[in-house]
Structures are given as structure tokens and as C-alpha cells.
Nucleic acid binder design. Structure first.
Lengths: 228, 228
DNA sequence: CGGGCAAGATTGTCTGACAGCCTGACTGTC
DNA sequence: GACAGTCAGGCTGTCAGACAATCTTGCCCG
């Protein structure tokens, strides 16, 4: 621990495997809606567009399929996963459960500087509540980064990240509800207040409440928005 | 519904993709400890042993890596994942949270015949508590199958199944503790009693307690058993 | 006895190819 | 004119072979 910049993530890691780069690229394209749910992902097209070979493309699609972002139909190929409202509700339910667990762990284990960082992250969320959606997302990502760092469980972080990514598949209409960003900020403030008070149960409950509200907002928007 | 055997699982689907067969094969080999944690999985050896081509092997390894059963080190290849005690504890914690959620859903949604099936599954667990480990596992698998069918969430089932599989990576010493099967059966009986009483909170709490006990047993065994 | 170097082993990736299945259009018949 | 059967094309599933990059291992030399 003498030099933190040394071995930030083990020595080398200069050139990430090509496959990892492509996975990240395609995943971001899906989460950024440049690839829309239901859209077919034809292997040959990806080969041409990305300039990589077909075996690599296939490995990438398999990986994203296990993550739940693409759905592979045998003999038919891959499509960007289109969530059913039921699936989305289930995913939110699991998020509520696991993020409450993360918050509880945070209260029990996080160092004081982690608590400070979490407070700062909520401050930032409140500040950006009326900014562009992209800035809001960035602030929220920062919040979760601090939360999971402080709660200190790699498997938990990995699983929740996967759930969040899948939920994002229907994010199109969830952020743009008037007043919702302010509500969300207030709910997260309640979480942090409980964290600062050292009340794990209250913090977990507040966190679960936040996710439930977010789910309600997103799902009602889904039902009333599109007749499909 | 005139003829149930008709379209049992849609007409064809006779020949599952080769890749899926191989994934199942390797996964079962890992969970059955025919491939031990830490063991290297050399692509060429798998090619020869399984009689399939290298691209297929690579897709299989990538898929199992995302599932967490194998760990891929860049430029070094794949090894069967070896859990650290901390990781195992975290996985049990997540299982407690999510299986409690599943039980709660079961209380709220399951049909009466599902409840009956769950009772029957616990009966079977009690009956096999002193039988061979394989029969115990089979009874437990049956219990979970009923539980998740009744709680009706595919994403939840999928996620928990993944967690259970990863936990099983250290199952070697967890079942053979004297008296533990009887304890586990009693704990699951408590879950089912609460389910029959329609008390979702009690059932979820009982379920979480069961997982916590299982975790304690498995982890203490891990710490005292091997100096590694 | 330690360190550097070379050979072997293994992964990462590409090219090319072929069989099987699904989709969609075309054509022939009623 | 509408419907059904057939055929061509597209795409996936899988294989074989090959080559560069990189890591490991063991040997040789200082």
C-alpha cells in the first residue's frame, strides 16, 4: 500500500483483451439505446461494423446473453432483450432487496471517509436534479460506486450492477417524469441521514422505499405510455 | 388442453444446441467436483476430451465465467473458481436476502396446490435427512423448484440459482456435519409452517435464518477444516 | 548459486468453409 | 383471385487450420 497508483489494478492491464472492449462497447450501445430492445443483432453485421472476426462476436453475444442484455433464440440469433413489465417489476423487487442489504453493510462496515463521500454524492445528486439527464445519471452512478465500495462485497456489487443494467433497458421513459429527480434525491437523502445516524434498519428501509418508488414511477409510465 | 403430451415443450427442440449441452456438462462436472476449484481448464484438453472444436469450447468458458463458476485470467486461461471465505459469506448473505424475498412472494401468490407441494417437499427433506447426500440434495432441489415455481419470478429464480451454484463450489464439507441435515429440515419446516399460516414476514425471516445457519455451518467448517 | 535467456506452452484472434434451419417470395392450381 | 406448396436466400451452428503475442519454465552462463 506504499504507492496507490502503483498496481492500480495489477501491474499491466495496458491492453485489455479485444473481446472485453467489444463487450463494453456493445453493452454501452444497448444501455444508451443506440441499439434498441427487440433489434436483431446479426453476427455478420457486427463483424463488419466492429471490424472484428465472427468467433469474437459470438463470444461477446454469449457473454451479454448471460448478463441478460441480449436474448438468443436458437437457430434465429440474438436480439436486444425486450423486458416485459412483469420482468421489470421483478428486477426492481430484487434491487430493492439487495440494495437494502448493501446499505446495511455500509452502515456496519464503511469507514468515516466513505460516509463523507456518500454524503457528498447525495449533495451532487441534489445539485443535478434539474440538470441534463446525463449529469443526473453520472451523479447516481457515483453514489452507487461509493455505496458499494463502502459495503465491501464484490459479488454483491457485481450482481446489483447486472440488475441495474437490465432495468435500464426500459429507462427510456423513467427519468423524464417531472418532479421525479427531486423526489429521488429526497429519498436518497433519507438513506444517507439514516446512515449517518448509524441506523442500519432505517437506512435499509429507506433504500428499499426509494427503489419501490422508482419502480412505481417507471412502470406506471410504461403502462400508460405505450399501448403495445 | 385436450392432449397434455401434445406440445409438452413446443414440438421439436429435440436437439439442444451442442454448446448448451457442453455448458451443462462442464457445469455439472464443476458442481460435482469432478473438476476441482483451482484446476486449470486448458482449451486444448477440453477440445480433445469433449470432442468439440475450440471456438465452441471458448464460448462455453466465457459463459461459465459470467456465471462465476470459472475465473478467466487474461493471457493465462480459465480455472475453476476457488471461493475465498469472504466471497462465500457474501454469497450466503445475498441468498438469505433473495430467498426471503422468494418466500414472501410465495406466500402472496402461490396457489393452494403449490403450498401442498411445498409441504410435500419438506416432508421429503425430513425423510431423507439421514439418507445419502445425493438424496438429500435431490430433495432440496425439489423444494426450491416448488418454491420458485410458486413465487413466479423467472429473473429471481435465475439469479438465485446462480448464487446457489456458486455457493456449491465449497459444498465439499458443508453437508457432512453430523446433525446438520436434521437442523436444516427443522428450519425449513418452520418456513413452511409460516407459509401455511399466511405470515409472509415470519416465513421470510425463517428462510433467512435457515440460510444464515447454513452459512455459519459451512464457513466454520471451512475455517477449521483446511489450513489453506 | 543467482540471474538472464531461450524454448515450449497457451491464449487471443483471424480466415475460410460447410451443413442445417428459418424466412420469405414465387409459382402453380383450384 | 386466393391459397398452398415449393424453392432460394440468409443466418446461425460448428468445424479446421493458422499465426502472433505473451507467459512460464527450465537451462545455461557468469
Amino acid at each position: 500500500m506504499a504507492d496507490p497508483t502503483w498496481s492500480a489494478d495489477q501491474v499491466g492491464r495496458v491492453a485489455a483483451p479485444l473481446r472485453e472492449q467489444v463487450v463494453t462497447l456493445v453493452r454501452d450501445a444497448i444501455l444508451g439505446f443506440r441499439l434498441q430492445p427487440g433489434q436483431r443483432l446479426v453476427e455478420r453485421e457486427l463483424v463488419e461494423q466492429l471490424g472484428i472476426s465472427r468467433p469474437t462476436v459470438r463470444e461477446v453475444l454469449r457473454q451479454l446473453a448471460v448478463e441478460g442484455l441480449v436474448t438468443v433464440v436458437p437457430q434465429r440469433g440474438a436480439v436486444v432483450t425486450a423486458l416485459t413489465p412483469d420482468d421489470a417489476a421483478d428486477l426492481y423487487e430484487m434491487r430493492a432487496s439487495l440494495e437494502a442489504l448493501a446499505v446495511r453493510r455500509f452502515v456496519q462496515r464503511a469507514a468515516p471517509e466513505h460516509v463523507e463521500a456518500l454524503v457528498a454524492a447525495v449533495d451532487e445528486i441534489e445539485r443535478t436534479a434539474r440538470s441534463a439527464p446525463q449529469e443526473q445519471l453520472q451523479a447516481k452512478d457515483r453514489f452507487y460506486e461509493v455505496l458499494f465500495t463502502g459495503s465491501g462485497s464484490a459479488p454483491l456489487q457485481q450482481t446489483v450492477a447486472g440488475l441495474q443494467a437490465r432495468v435500464r433497458l426500459l429507462r427510456a421513459t423513467s427519468l423524464s417524469v417531472p418532479g421525479r429527480p427531486e423526489e429521488a434525491a429526497a429519498e436518497l437523502r433519507a438513506v444517507v441521514d439514516a446512515v449517518q445516524a448509524g441506523d442500519a434498519d432505517a437506512a435499509a428501509a429507506a433504500c428499499a422505499r426509494h427503489i419501490e418508488n422508482a419502480a412505481r414511477t417507471a412502470l406506471s409510465r410504461l403502462n400508460t405510455g405505450e399501448p403495445a
